[in-house]
Write a protein that binds this DNA or RNA. Sequence first.
DNA 1: TCACACGACCGCCATC
DNA 2: AAGATGGCGGTCGTGT
Length: 329
Amino acid sequence: MAATDHSRRVVLFAPADVHSLEIAAVMDVFHEANTQRQDTLYELVVVAEHAGPIHASSGLAIMPHRSIGDGPLSADTFVVAGSYRIPRHVSKSVTDWIAACAGMARRYGAVCTGTFLLGAAGLIEGRRVTTHWHYAAELASRFPGAKLQADDIFVRDGRLFTSAGVSAAIDLSLALVQEDEGLPLALSIARHMVMYLKRPGGQSQYSASLAAQAVRPSSVSAALQWASENADRKLSVEVLAARAAMSPRNFSRRLARDFGLTPAQFVEQVRVERARRLLEDTRLSLEQVTHASGFGSLATARRAFLRRLGITMKQYRERFRLGPTRDEP
DNA sequence: TCACACGACCGCCATC
DNA sequence: AAGATGGCGGTCGTGT
């Protein structure tokens, strides 16, 4: 599909040794948006430092569309991908180019260690950012002026967004599509990519179980993981805290600190996700879905859906029922 | 739709 | 000394 005058240009910078999944994740989500709308909503441009193919850390060869030698690109969305290596020596031509592109973009950000490149370009000073947890300490020491939120897997600060892990790139991209085109398209893309976990709207852009997987393992995240697999059980603060071997008071404190959620918010999120999945994949009645996802009553489930998705369970099923979700003639 | 009871939340303080 | 943890209780929100 060729770019049209209403296309939004998404520029992706691929550093040396880029993690191939990050490039693929971002491209595939935006490409799927184009496919589903049968329109070029997004024009995707991959840029590397030098012309010619680059090798991702996995060995996969990627052929960028352009190199930075072609000059800064005006982009709607500018994303710097990361690699498993922290960029040590970043040339001035790269940082200048990144700064120029970010300056022109409506929004810009980084995935994983891409945050280091934004930092080298002077774009995270005084800003709230995150990165892959494994590199958080180094980011903090290299860029002491940045307000690092190491335990968050997605942080947005005005035009700037950063995300933690590799797989989070998909959720990040979905969140951007959702911002532009609304929840239904984002959900539909997620469904096609078999990414059932995306949590639409709300404070964090991430699903409960994804969040539990994404941070440093701890007894808290283990308890959350367990909860996300057992939505139909009783999930009171007391039960979750016992699972994490700590007092209810301390459990909710840690949850607030590490995930920005209260226990009740987390549980509701888990239950809505579970119910959504059942609504999409099964023909269980609303009553059965309600029960299987741990809601006490239909009324409770309905309210939770309205709160989080803005639609009722019935409407949700009508929209995302079994079968193709692509707009087909 | 409404009232009520229960659970969740959070500030505060003690303790480790 | 400072940070993490646990318990108490008033208030609020929410499920039934």
